[in-house]
Design a protein around this nucleic acid. Structure first.
Lengths: 202, 202
DNA sequence: GTCTATAGCATGATAGAC
DNA sequence: GTCTATCATGCTATAGAC
């Protein structure tokens, strides 16, 4: 076998992975507007023509990127929190969601941008699918937490889940915009309290 | 005076307004990616070269657009709601915010996109300014409503305001994404209830 | 002061060489 | 099956005609 890191004439699958990695980097650094086929190939250190041989079109690259980024992201809400106190569980879950973004803001911002753009290109399926995964996962957790804490939701749990997802999205996007840690902290704490008030001891 | 609607050689100010109107249309129909100097001039029915004569650069057009769109938008939260019940006031305010977007979703989506893009171009001031206006207005209303209803906020009112703004943003953006009226309705209603629980009768 | 014609460049894509 | 050279198009911007 040839050395893997240098030399020409690699397989199409190898090129594909290589270009996807490069595309993520470009997206993080220059945003969606800067995501050009030439920037991606330059970043990967391969000739420009390779791009259309591997992906066929730029749209195909974007689709592949979305698939790759969304897969597994839905599990973020799934990490169960081990506590009997509903408010604490909620706060920790919100914090975890925020930490996910804080760990690599540019990356998350890029993913947001991708999803948004995908919606306009009538490539709605991916974004819709993502949202449904999130909602289902949150709803599952809301039920689990309320059972653990011995409380009952005063509103349909799917409504609570929808509010939790939207509100968390809002807080996260606000943080992405202003990077104000204290404000985000305060908002998540208050949101946990407010949401908790939507349940009463059975 | 010459007839105003046809003929060449109009004043630069006239051209400027004409191009701004055209730019908003283009933005609504084709998004920020489709907002090119050629598209704008074509839409306005003027020669392409006019553009750089009037605005100097595309960036100047974007800046002018943001100024125009943000001015007056901050007053949306300012419309006072006449009711003694805090939860009702909140729900009506959230509904009003949602209605504003529902009245012309494409337009609002375009404005969101503009502001987001402006942030990346280190043209932060406009977006920051907007947010501060909103926050101040919401805070003012929160105090007014609580006084009217004879209740006191259990948390710093600026924290409540931050949560209200973020959560409302999240709900609005969710609606823009999925256009699910029922879900938005449920979320605003629940949010009003949840926020109300952050205040107690004095 | 207003507008036209053109420059100069970057893009996405492809025909065909190896 | 892999890659290179090239194309046609669309972009922002400007030099200079009226």
């Amino acid at each position: 076998m040839a050395r893997s890191s240098s030399g020409s004439h690699r397989s199409a699958d190898e090129r594909r992975a290589q270009l996807l990695d490069a595309a993520v980097d470009v997206l993080r650094e220059h945003g969606l507007a800067g995501l050009t086929t030439r920037a991606v190939t330059a970043r990967a250190g391969v000739p420009h023509g390779i791009f259309h041989y591997v992906f066929g079109s730029k749209a195909a690259l974007v689709r592949a990127l979305i698939d790759r980024e969304l897969t597994g992201a839905a599990t973020a809400w799934g990490a169960a929190v081990a506590t009997d106190d509903l408010e604490t569980a909620l706060r920790q879950a919100f914090r975890a969601q925020l930490d996910l973004v804080r760990a690599d803001p540019e990356h998350q911002a890029a993913v947001f941008e991708l999803i948004r753009a995908a919606r306009d290109d009538s490539d709605v399926s991916a974004a819709e699918w993502e949202r449904r995964q999130y909602l289902a996962e949150i709803q599952r957790q809301l039920v689990a937490w309320s059972q653990r804490g011995g409380v009952t939701w005063d509103a349909p749990v799917e409504h609570v889940a929808a509010l939790v997802l939207s509100a968390t999205d809002g807080i996260v996007q606000t943080w992405v915009a202003d990077r104000d840690d204290a404000r985000a902290e305060a908002s998540t704490g208050l949101l946990a309290r407010a949401i908790t008030s939507l349940a009463h001891t059975a």
